[in-house]
Simulated scan of single mutants.
Amino acid sequence: MTAKNVIGGALALCSTSPLTGWKRDGCCSTDDSDNGRHVVCAVMTAEFLDFSAGQGNDLSTPRPEYDFAGLRPGDRWCLCAARWEEARIAGFAPDVVLDATHAKALETTALGHLQAHAITD
Rank of each mutant, 00 (worst) to 15 (best):
P18D: 09
A10L: 12
L106R: 02
E65N: 14
T2P: 15
P94D: 04
M1Q: 14
R63K: 15
V39N: 03
S15E: 10
E65L: 12
W84V: 03
G70M: 00
W77C: 03
A10R: 14
H117V: 01
E86R: 05
L106A: 03
A12W: 08
D25I: 15
H117F: 00
T120S: 13
V6S: 06
P64F: 08
C14W: 02
V6G: 06
W77A: 03
Q55C: 11
M44E: 13
S29Q: 07
V39I: 09
A12K: 14
A105K: 04
A100T: 06
L106N: 01
A53E: 15
E85H: 07
F48G: 05
S33L: 11
L49P: 11
W22M: 01
P64A: 12
G112W: 14
C28W: 01
D95T: 11
R76A: 12
A46P: 01
A82Q: 07
T120E: 12
L114W: 06
L114P: 02
R72T: 14
S33M: 11
N5W: 12
V39H: 01
N5S: 15
K23L: 07
N5T: 13
L114K: 08
C80G: 11
V96K: 10
K104F: 08
L71T: 10
P73Q: 14
V97H: 03
A103C: 04
A103R: 00
H102M: 09
I89Q: 06
D67I: 08
A93E: 04
D50M: 00
D32N: 10
C80S: 15
A46C: 05
L106K: 03
E65F: 08
A10C: 09
A116K: 12
R76T: 08
R37Y: 04
A69S: 12
A12I: 06
R83Q: 05
C41Y: 06
A12P: 01
H38Q: 15
D32S: 14
N35Q: 15
T30G: 02
I7G: 04
A3R: 01
I7M: 06
S60N: 07
A10H: 13
W22Q: 03
E85G: 05
P73F: 11
A87T: 04
S29Y: 02
L98V: 09
D31S: 07
Y66R: 08
G70L: 00
C41F: 07
D58V: 10
A116F: 07
K23Q: 09
L59S: 03
G9N: 14
L79E: 06
Q55H: 13
G26Y: 03
P73N: 12
A10V: 09
V6I: 15
A81P: 09
K4M: 05
E65A: 15
H117Q: 08
R24Y: 11
L11Q: 06
P62F: 07
